[in-house]
Amino acid sequence: MAEEPIILFEHVNKTYKNGTIGLKDINLSIPKGQFLVVVGLSGAGKSTLLRTINRMHGITDGKLYVDGDEISQYKGKALRTLRRQIGMIFQNFNLVNRSSVQKNVLSGRVGYYPAWKSILGLFSKSDRDKAVRSLRRVNMLEKLYARADELSGGQQQRVAIARTLMQDPKIILADEPIASLDPKTTKTVMDTLKSLNQEDEMTVIVNLHSVSLAREYADRIIGLRAGEVVYDQMIENVKEADLNQIYQTEEDS
């Protein structure tokens, strides 16, 4: 029997409050340790798909399993515990600009502390060391005491990855992590994600607009269109022509 998938979508639908269909009958099994890239046109539902996994968005119906547990009804403590094992990386980095790099990185750990301790900044010695190790890992240790808004985009994204590492995540969700970066920093960021996947055995799911990057890094590529999975192949079976198909609009075809 195959190993249990770390993420499993069963007939998942998501309709936004205003009636927009975000996801339509998604069935998806993601094994542990996979590097999955999601591609699709703008508005296809990539961000929506990613955000249902850590329940930043709720689903309308269907079942969604993470590590064997059905999470779609999680609330309060259960929800926070789910979220702290899932790292999320954003297109706009989402650092607190006016805070130091150190504080930003430590904020990745607050899910493990009661509110009063994190507010007073009472982090344990081992977590402070962990922040140093996380920053060293992304080559940003020298900026420990810099303010986040003093950093370039690529540096900010690396700090954001360090923040995510503080969570000890099993899963990393990255929503167009390189969309506002130049080609060189793009490579650094994608390589870091790849190393988390290969060395730390994290399951990584990345939304990308670039087909060539998808082919370079993915174990598997899925394509979304209008909230539906229209393409799903392991990398060895991916053909250029199929991918271009995903990016065709109604009028083109």
Partner: peptide, 21 residues
Amino acid sequence: MGPIEALESVGARKLTVIWYA
């Protein structure tokens, strides 16, 4: 709102989100 989203995504409580983000 970005930092708020980030703090929520790491499993922070409401008060912690307000304090940090």
